[in-house]
Amino acid sequence: MKEFIKVKDLYFKYEEEDGQESDFALRGIDLTINKGEFVAVVGHNGSGKSTLAKHFNAIYLPTTGDVTVDGMNTKDDDRVFDIRKKVGLVLQNPDNQIVAGVVEEDVAFGCENLGVPPAEIRHRVDEALKAVDMYEYRQHSPDKLSGGQKQRVAIAGIIAMEPECIVLDEPTAMLDPRGRDEVMETITKLNRENGITIILITHYMEEAVLADRVVMVDQGRIFLDGTPREVFSRVELLKQHRLDVPQATELNYKLRGCGFDVPDSVLSEEECIEAIMKLIKG
């Protein structure tokens, strides 16, 4: 697999307005994200996961250390727009990232900034809206949409810029369960079908299960990095870092703790049921 984003020994400190020294929000992050991967970055509120997300497209710049995107250093002023063209960022609050008063015009906003010719923008906007399944709403006002729909419009606005990677900073935190499903379905599809690299920042473990790889962050450091199966087998460690595991995983973990012959880790209801059936039948 080809390396895409490389984070090297990243330390980051917020600049306080009153000149006060604050603690480091990130302390020594080393992380490589490959092309086409679906990575979930998990951690509790204040763990530094959102701060890390904003380093991937040069919104924040490292205090020390480096972040490179496809070989470009985010500190290089001349490459900022090239980086943001490759790495799009979707924020938590869907209301605050929609610029225009009509869905399709908002989706076009990024392309317009890039100076894409009008006919090409039209084409990309239509394709992007179809990709997030919002095409029939293209003439609507964003105010009349549900949270999940707004968030999908925000994602379409990024897709239209044809990025190689989309970073989503807690995109489902403000949504109801249906909106959450819609967004997760969209993200998974973009990764599987369009080959877009996805970095999902979340504290919902049900969402992290869908990723290829889970990175657990706390106190500005990486504590775990592996497949969901590996990470979710560490139930105690996750709990220590103020995180949950899906209930199916926890049930399996408890059974395993009692000495029953179940897998190291299960991720879904189906796997959990299969394991229990095996115990009972076997």
Binding site: Q247, A248, L251, E269, I273, I276, M277
Partner: peptide
């Protein structure tokens, strides 16, 4: 809840 679903599905399998 996921745990309730697991119980539902187990019961449907006769457990």
């Amino acid at each position: 809840p996921q745990i309730t679903r697991i119980m539902m599905l187990l019961r449907e399998k006769g457990i």
